[in-house]
Amino acid sequence: MPVDEGLRSELQKAGVFIASVETIYNWSRRSSVWPLQFGLACCAIEMIATACSRFDLARFGAEVFRPSPRQADLMIVAGTVTKKMAPQVVRLFNQMPEPKYVIAMGACAISGGPFKQGYNVLKGIDRFIPVDVHIPGCPPRPEALLNALMFLQRQIDNQHLTGVNKVRWYDDTDPAEYPIPRFGAHDLEPPFNRAVWHPQKIQRGAA
């Protein structure tokens, strides 16, 4: 419930700060997003460059790269996801504790990018796991990753803990884990998760 602005400022003068649980929750989430130290390909180098001296990801409270998925909040899918790697990516995502966010960094993670025609390239990680922010580019510049992080922080600010639009980890109908694809004789089985990814239908001509 929104608090009256006048009342709030009056109380602040007396040293009393009022905020909803939601605000505190979102503020603390957004200020310490710990990414998973997880590089796949070329974009990972730009991710490291973002964390290094010139771009300094620490300014946004996200410099603590955790090698273990169990300590991380944010998975930056930085690079091409191949079919051989896809089950491991989904498994890592499942191992991350909620709340968890995913940034698909670069054209390959979004759609397969320049390697889309490859027989071993997954055409976008959103075939298997839900993605919060997509960053285009091949590779995206470090500034783009910073922008994506700020975008994610704005998304976190607008999270709701209750109500119709509540976050997915408080929604009982949402799965906490996503099925891991298996290696098949010709392709991954299944090639995509029907619950997450819906291929666009084409309407063309008479058909």
């Binding site: 051989k84 390697f115 025609q117 027989y119």
Partner: peptide
């Protein structure tokens, strides 16, 4: 190996 096998050679042949 193979976790980043992006089929560079096959794509280049086409």
């Amino acid at each position: 190996f193979g976790y980043l096998h992006r089929n560079h050679e096959k794509i280049a042949e086409n």
